[in-house]
Structures are given as C-alpha cells and as structure tokens.
C-alpha cells in the first residue's frame, strides 16, 4: 500500500517544471513537500492523483487509494455541512457513521445544520478536510491544507493526520508552514526543478523545438 515515484517529470502548461523526482511513501509515514511558489507542488500532486498525465517516469500507487484535497474544497454553498459531507461519504461508499465521526473529529458537530455559504473560511476548510476522513482512503494527498486555518485548527488537523498515520495511513503534504508533525520526512523540491541548464533536455519532448527552419 505504498506510493512509489520513480524518475518522474511533470509539466504545467506544456512546460516541464519538475524532473527526475523519486520518493517512496510507506504506510504510517508522512512526507512534506517544500519549495518556493511555482516550483510545481500542485502540478505534482495533480499528476499523482491521475488528473493530468506525467511527462515521463513511473507512479506506483495503491488502486483507488489516493484521497486528494486541493485548494478548492468542492463545497456546495446551498447544502448544509452534513449534506456536503454525506454526499462524499456516499460517493466513497462509507456511510453515515463515518460522517458523524468526521464531523466530531474536525470539530464541526455544532455546525452540522449550517449552510456551507454561512461558514467562515476556516470552517469551510475544516469541512473540506473532513472529506478525507469519509473517503476511507489510505493515502492522503494534501495541497496547502492549512490555508485559512487558525493555530488551534492547525493543531487539530495535525492530530487528525497523526491518527491517520497511526492507523496505517500515509500523507503527502505540500505546505509552507510547520504542521508540528515531527515524525514527517521533508522533501525539498527545489533540486528537482527543471533547471535552466538542463532545459534543452527538458524540452526533448517538444517536437516543435530543435533545429528546423
């Protein structure tokens, strides 16, 4: 149930941004991805989740094992908190018990009947992250999960991740801030940048470059 990446190159808008990337994420482990804005963290995560094709390289992931949390929470403002979560629970086939547990765990129980439109940004984020709990999937792929969370909520979420790891799950986290997960490994993406010097090689896939009149 581990996620393994070998010699992976990913591209955004037809331009290769990361290349030669490789890592293994074992069950019970967390991996924090770091790197400046635009280095290709989101692109990498979307590629891992199968939303876009890799330029080259290998991704070995457990089938239907990844749960993706993007910048957008995918909330419907006209539905209340419980309905939003219940929808994803039904999609992932986990059921109402998982919804109640997730609401409890993310400290959303008191807000269960409130419409998503009336939540604060941080509450919305918590609801978005609660979806991970109802997905029942082992590998969490998180893109800036702590945006708009306050300190208490960050600590709460770090606890949720720790529990998930304790149950044999794993997490791949792109973040700028310190989650307080001391056990997490850190992978800096900067060295894997498709660098200017290696650019000609990075462009090898583009048939429109090279010598022709």
């Amino acid at each position: 149930m581990e996620l393994t990446v070998r010699n992976l190159s990913v591209a955004r808008g037809g331009i290769t941004v990361l290349e030669g990337l490789g890592f293994t994420l074992a069950p019970g482990r967390a991996l924090v991805l770091r790197g400046p804005n635009g280095v290709g963290k989101t692109t990498l995560l979307r590629t891992l989740c199968g939303l876009q094709p890799a330029v080259r390289g290998e991704i070995a992931a457990p089938p239907e094992g990844l749960a993706y949390a993007s910048h957008a929470d995918g909330l419907k403002s006209m539905l209340d908190v419980r309905e939003n979560l219940a929808f994803w629970a039904a999609v992932f086939g986990t059921g109402p018990a998982a919804v109640a547990r997730a609401l409890e765990r993310m400290n959303l129980s008191t807000l269960a009947a409130r419409r998503a439109a009336n939540l604060s940004a941080g509450q919305k984020r918590r609801l978005g992250l609660a979806r991970l709990l109802v997905s029942g999937r082992p590998v969490w792929v998180l893109d800036e999960p702590t945006v708009s969370l306050d300190t208490a909520s960050v600590a709460l979420f770090a606890g949720v991740i720790r529990d998930h790891l304790g149950q044999g799950g794993s997490a791949l986290i792109a973040t700028h801030i310190d989650l307080g997960l001391d056990e997490a490994e850190i992978l800096d993406l900067t060295p894997f940048r498709a660098a200017t010097g290696a650019l000609a090689q990075a462009w090898g896939d583009d048939p429109f470059l090279g010598d022709f009149a």
């Binding site: 939303l51 993706y68 995918g74 997905s135």
Partner: peptide
C-alpha cells in the same frame, strides 16, 4: 462543479 473544485474531486473518486 468545475469552479468549486468538486469536479476534480469527483474525478479522483470511485
């Protein structure tokens, strides 16, 4: 669904 990100999440769902 595209704007609020649900479509991305649906695409990664079962």
């Amino acid at each position: 669904d595209f704007e609020d990100g649900s479509l991305d999440l649906l695409a990664t769902s079962p």
